[in-house]
């Protein structure tokens, strides 16, 4: 139980996927200029992430490993992710039209979010148990949602600040992300 708690904290904060491992930067910088869609996208990505990691774990241990088809891992995982994203879009459209209107454009892009594929590959690489994988991916998803909403809030403030013209937009966003990453380095060593 203590181990699972450690995995959760480590995946969400200490080894944050965006700021420490550089996964999922495209949505992190692309969708973070306003707070509400960023948070919604963060949560949707977290759901897709946990679902795919759990399914990927199953496929790896019940299909690929017994048949010695590990070299097909990438192809199988990316197909799996596309299917889960499709499924999530259907569910959101059926249950919450409002959320679907906000996220509609960004949802298919979750397929090409490297954090989703990265978490599935890393979880398999670390040979975690099924519950370990689940906790690891939930932690990763929570970390992603946390950081993207923090950063969107930061950028809303930045958009009103007087920034030198060469730094306006992307450069100042990158430098702010660097300072945020500096803050997250403070978690290094937690739970060791």
């Amino acid at each position: 139980m203590g181990d699972l708690g450690l995995i959760l904290v480590s995946a969400a904060l200490v080894n944050n996927f965006v700021l420490v491992q550089f996964l999922g930067l495209c949505p992190f910088l692309g969708v973070s200029d306003r707070y509400p869609p960023a948070t919604a996208l963060g949560l949707a990505t977290a759901c897709v992430l946990s679902l795919t990691a759990a399914l990927a774990h199953g496929v790896e241990h019940w299909v690929l490993a017994p048949l010695e088809l590990e070299f097909l891992r990438l192809i199988v995982f990316i197909t799996l992710i596309a299917a889960v994203v499709q499924f999530t879009e259907r569910v959101i459209r059926a249950t919450s039209p409002v959320l679907h209107a906000i996220l509609g454009l960004y949802l298919p892009l979750i397929t090409s979010n490297c954090a989703v594929l990265g978490v599935a590959i890393l979880a398999v690489g670390q040979q975690l148990s099924f519950f370990g994988t689940l906790v690891y991916s939930v932690g990763a998803g929570v970390g992603f949602a946390l950081v993207i909403s923090l950063f969107a809030a930061l950028r809303e403030r930045l958009s009103r600040a007087a920034v030198p013209s060469a730094f306006a937009g992307i450069p100042i966003a990158l430098v702010s992300a660097g300072i945020l990453a500096l803050g997250f380095m403070g978690f290094a060593g937690v739970g060791r």
Partner: peptide, 25 residues
Amino acid sequence: LIVVLPPGAFITAGLLIALSRGIAA
């Protein structure tokens, strides 16, 4: 050391983009 650590990646990239924009302007 900070330049090789993760925060340095963001900051260096931001500075390089700003530099290239400044030169272009």
